[in-house]
Design a protein around this nucleic acid. Structure first.
Length: 232
DNA sequence: CGTATTTGACCAGCGC
DNA sequence: GCGCTGGTCAAATACG
């Protein structure tokens, strides 16, 4: 599925590492915005600008830190986990393994000793469900605020929707997406702000372990041509 | 017919 | 312990 890109002006980008400790969003209007880097794999109508950062209280239990203007965004590096921002977050998040990891291994060991009658099978299913849920270690998270008529930010990756949920204090539902790449477990959440309905908040969780598909689509013919020419 | 989306149910975590 | 909330699953449905 491909949703045509129609948004402009990502209003902010920041990590939940920052947001989890913060303060109230700024009362003052942000300074004039300057045009910025165009993310790779995105179509020309996009206009990216730097921005103050603030958080949606409907999305996060804790208010964000002081707003800050981030430097130019290297989207490829950021979304593939190579930027200083994302790698920094990885370091922060590489703490002790969550108890879910332990639970999942113990549950599989437990499963060997269980007969396969119906009730126990149901129990195992629950185990697997909760294990996968609990496996959710703290992963790097990035949030983008974009001004857009469409909810979906065309970031060059392919996503499959796996859930939608009404959230408290918001008239708009939150949508849950997973990266469709078979080896990639990156997720994102998309929600429109009720305070400012023109703003869509996209939260990425995890780092892609594969190249941006749209970027590869663009580059592959060029690379082939370069390889062809290199033979002469 | 294969793939993507929708949506109700289930579950864990948290606060009271 | 109970209720609320957010996140995920998976069957049903829609779509190309």
């Amino acid at each position: 599925m491909h949703i045509p890109p129609t948004f402009s002006n990502p209003l902010s980008i920041f990590s939940h590492q920052q947001m989890d400790q913060g303060q109230e969003p700024p009362a003052q209007p942000p300074p004039p915005l300057q045009p910025q880097l165009l993310p790779p794999g995105l179509n020309p109508p996009y206009v990216f600008t730097p921005s103050l950062t603030y958080s949606s209280s409907s999305l996060h239990q804790n208010p964000p830190l002081e707003p800050q203007i981030l430097p130019d965004i290297d989207w490829v590096s950021l979304l593939s986990g190579q930027s200083s921002l994302s790698s920094g977050l990885c370091e922060i998040n590489n703490g002790p393994m969550t108890m879910m990891e332990n639970c999942s291994s113990s549950s599989s060991a437990m499963a060997e000793n269980i007969n396969k009658d119906e009730d126990q099978e149901k129990g195992n299913n629950r185990m697997r469900k909760s294990s996968s849920r609990m496996k959710k270690a703290t992963r790097p998270r990035f949030e983008f605020q974009t001004r857009s008529v469409d909810d979906i930010l065309d970031d060059g990756y392919r996503w499959r929707k796996y859930g939608q949920k009404a959230v408290k204090n918001s008239i708009y539902p939150r949508s849950y997406y997973r990266c469709t790449h078979h080896t990639c477990s990156v997720k994102k959440q998309v929600q429109r702000l009720s305070k400012d309905t023109s703003i869509v908040v996209t939260t990425y969780e995890g780092i892609h372990n594969h190249p941006c598909e749209k970027l590869m689509e663009t580059l592959t013919p060029l690379l082939k041509q370069m390889q062809f020419l290199a033979r002469f």
